[in-house]
């Protein structure tokens, strides 16, 4: 209780009780201590000379980055097309794979909460925990570099995202609408088609467009690990320290990301 009586009997109001205050302070202190400790551990091997030298390095790189090498842009159209395909085809593949996973993971549509649901949830968690770049790294090692590895990497990463949001949407549906369709004597598939799908369709469309937008971003850098797209050019330019080309690539990536963000916002807006 923040209100107590003082010795003279006058009520005293404090923002927090002294105990709450104590806990709060100890908490903050612990956080600061943890931060300092982490900082120490993290920087134990840092070569500070490089850090002091960083402003000069930054100035140096900046001066090499400008002006951008505009002529290089003609070499970027084809990788850009690949990037777009990686994102779009990857998203499509992910949709095909994640719809069943979502229905298996949703509490109200899964055939078995004890066996199937945990497996579906594990698929979702694994896919979500591992970044597209790591998937790319693995897939390039396994099936060789190229656009195909990129598509699979994007798809594997997106399954978790789409399935998770979709199964949450499925769990939130209005069951009376499903019950009503059931009561007409509809079969299981018909109940799905008439009772469940109309309810989740807007969420589903929004989720996939949103994910496509994220995938465009991620597919621009997949080339850094060899999985195709404009990132390959980025990697190549950095390797030869052609900073003018790097700037051009950055600007192209920036433009692409802005356009895809705009498209995705437009589409989502029209769907609601």
């Amino acid at each position: 209780m923040p209100i107590s009586k003082s010795e003279t009997g006058v009520p005293v109001w404090q923002h927090r009780t002294s105990k709450a205050n104590l806990i709060l302070w100890v908490g903050w202190l612990a956080l600061v201590a943890l931060f300092v400790f982490c900082w120490q551990v993290m920087t134990q091997d840092t070569i500070w000379y490089f850090v002091y030298d960083a402003p000069r390095q930054a100035a140096d790189i900046t001066s090499r980055m400008f002006p951008p090498k505009w002529g290089y842009i003609s070499e970027l159209w084809w990788p850009l097309w690949d990037t777009l395909n990686i994102a779009t085809l990857g998203t499509l593949l992910a949709i095909i794979l994640s719809v069943p996973v979502a229905f298996l993971a949703a509490r109200n549509t899964t055939p078995s909460t004890r066996f199937v649901r945990p497996v579906a949830l594990f698929v979702i968690v694994s896919s979500r925990s591992i970044n597209a770049l790591i998937w790319g790294l693995l897939l390039v090692a396994v099936i060789g570099p190229g656009v195909f590895a990129g598509i699979i990497a994007i798809a594997l990463r997106s399954i978790g995202f789409i399935s998770k949001l979709l199964y949450e949407a499925i769990e939130e549906i209005d069951t009376t609408q499903v019950e009503a369709i059931n009561a007409t004597g509809a079969s299981g598939l018909q109940t799905l088609d008439y009772g469940i799908v109309p309810q989740i369709l807007p969420a589903f469309a929004g989720i996939t467009v949103f994910r496509w937008d994220i995938n465009i971003r991620e597919s621009t850098v997949l080339g850094l690990v060899g999985a195709g797209g404009i990132g390959l050019k980025l990697q190549a330019s950095i390797n030869v320290l052609a900073w003018g080309q790097v700037t051009t690539i950055f600007l192209v990536i920036l433009g692409t990301v802005l356009v895809s963000e705009w498209v995705s916002a437009k589409v989502r807006h029209s769907l609601i």
Binding site: M42, I47, F50, I61, V221, F250, I253, V257, L258
Partner: peptide, 24 residues
């Protein structure tokens, strides 16, 4: 927001050298 973490990391590594400080 306009650049992926990985691109930012490339630049910071170039400036501050390899290691977790660039990551931080």
């Amino acid at each position: 927001r306009s650049f992926q973490e990985i691109i930012v990391a490339i630049l910071f590594v170039a400036m501050f050298g390899f290691g977790p400080l660039a990551g931080f």
